[in-house]
Simulated assay, not measured.
Amino acid sequence: MGFQTQVGYQPAPAVEGDFASTNPRATVLAGPGGLVCGAAGVIVGRFAWASSSYIDADGAPAVVNSFGSGAPTGFVHREQQGLILTYLQESTMLVPAGFPITLFDAGDFWVKNNGSTQAVPGMKAFVAFADGKISFAAAGSAAGTASGSASSIAAGTSSVTGSIAGNVLTVTAVGSGTVYPGTTISGTGVATGTQIVSQLSGTAGGIGTYSVSIPEQTVASTAISGTYGILTVGGTVAGTFGVGQTLSGTNVVAGTAITALGTGTGGAGTYIVNNNTVVASTAITGATGVETKWFCRSSGLPGELVKMSSRAQG
């Protein structure tokens, strides 16, 4: 920002992330040791997602990130919790990794309109998977998208030897394939529907430890099979594909989402998805954001502050 060079004749109504009223508000439930900021920290004034990479003593997600997929867990209110860590930096909205964080799932807040069009009272709030930024549009509008006109999904598999304690899978040997986030695993004693959330340590995609989606498991060393999908983006590509996007297209199973990068880094290439249903070459679209339950409560041009509420009027 630099040294102040101008003075506004009308003070700003608020700072991004401030409460917009004294109406009742609610916070996201958290157990012992949670919630804390993930490795990249959390941005104030944006939405955030709880992750099961680590769980608290109650078996609930303990880590929060400013990126994710699906509906966000809650909103990050400004409580002067940002911390300047860079030499000569004048301001920040970043709460560093490991710091405690509170998420709100109800209330009224001031937020920045990060969209390209004017926000109008009654519009719904949309959140970007990549960074938790907020924009506004009519209910039912399509979130930002990326598309590949000739894309497909192939089935992928892996086979490892491993054990599970709590929500941590320890892989001691790899028979075939690669262990990716989003992989659905099965084996003797493994809870049905268990998926790999993220790798915690070890060789990428191989021997090491991984967090899984269903905690409180005790599985002795056994053969564990994994299934996932390999999305190949091709044809005419528009927009940017990335982790967290939900996919749609002919024969694409609802809820299919990108969980890891393959050879693709946003454009044509391969991406790992959480469903191994085979899809022949077709147009596949990836949603870069999602509509939330929150509403716009004041008008604001792109870049301006607007009021946002979890409550519908009327």
Rank of each mutant, 00 (worst) to 15 (best):
Q6I: 06
G8T: 09
Q10F: 14
A14D: 03
A14T: 01
E16N: 15
E16K: 15
F19P: 05
N23P: 00
T27V: 12
V28N: 00
P32Q: 12
L35M: 07
V36S: 06
V42R: 02
V42W: 03
A50Q: 15
S51H: 12
Y54E: 12
I55Q: 11
G59Y: 11
P61Y: 12
N65G: 10
F67H: 15
G68W: 05
A71V: 11
V76W: 07
G82K: 01
L83P: 00
L85P: 01
Q89C: 03
A97H: 09
D105E: 09
A106L: 02
D108R: 08
F109K: 07
N114D: 14
G115T: 06
G115S: 05
Q118A: 15
P121R: 10
V127G: 10
G132P: 09
I134N: 04
A137H: 13
A139Q: 15
G140D: 07
A143V: 02
A143N: 08
A143R: 03
T145G: 00
S151I: 01
S151K: 07
I153D: 03
A154I: 00
T157K: 12
V168A: 02
T170I: 10
A173R: 09
Y180N: 13
P181Q: 07
S186H: 00
G189A: 15
V190Q: 02
G193E: 03
I207S: 04
Y210W: 08
Y210D: 02
S211E: 05
V212R: 01
V212T: 07
P215G: 09
T218E: 13
I224V: 14
T227I: 13
I230R: 12
L231S: 06
G235L: 07
F241P: 07
T250G: 07
T250E: 12
A257G: 02
A260Y: 13
T265I: 13
G266Q: 07
A268T: 15
I272E: 02
V273D: 04
V278L: 09
T285L: 09
E291T: 08
T292N: 06
W294M: 11
R297C: 07
S298H: 10
G303Y: 10
E304C: 05
M308C: 11
S310A: 10
R311W: 02
A312L: 14
